[in-house]
């Protein structure tokens, strides 16, 4: 995948996407253990009130990520 691939911080609230790959090994290991895999469908539900955190939903669970973590989740976009 190209370097210009979109990451979670660039999603609009309410936008769906598929996880393509991770650009940081630590983030990848932790998120995959938490059930977010390449190929998982995710939805950016909202951003935190004071910024800096992202609330995402994957199938049947919810995960909060910091900006740095969200930047390292590269996405394949889904055509709505």
């Amino acid at each position: 995948m190209s370097l210009s691939a979109k990451n979670i911080t660039q999603l609009q609230v309410g936008e769906n996407a598929i996880i393509g790959e991770f650009s940081n090994g630590f983030v990848a290991c932790k998120l995959m253990a938490m059930g977010l895999l390449p190929g998982s469908a995710i939805l950016l539900v909202r951003k935190s009130p004071f910024g800096g955190a992202y609330y995402i939903r994957a199938k049947n669970h919810y995960v909060a990520l910091r900006s740095y973590e969200a930047e390292n989740v590269l996405l394949n976009l889904v055509i709505p």
Partner: peptide, 11 residues
């Protein structure tokens, strides 16, 4: 230690 959020929001 890493400082990270990556937090599950349980139902």
């Amino acid at each position: 230690e890493y400082s990270f959020l990556m937090l599950e929001l349980p139902e």
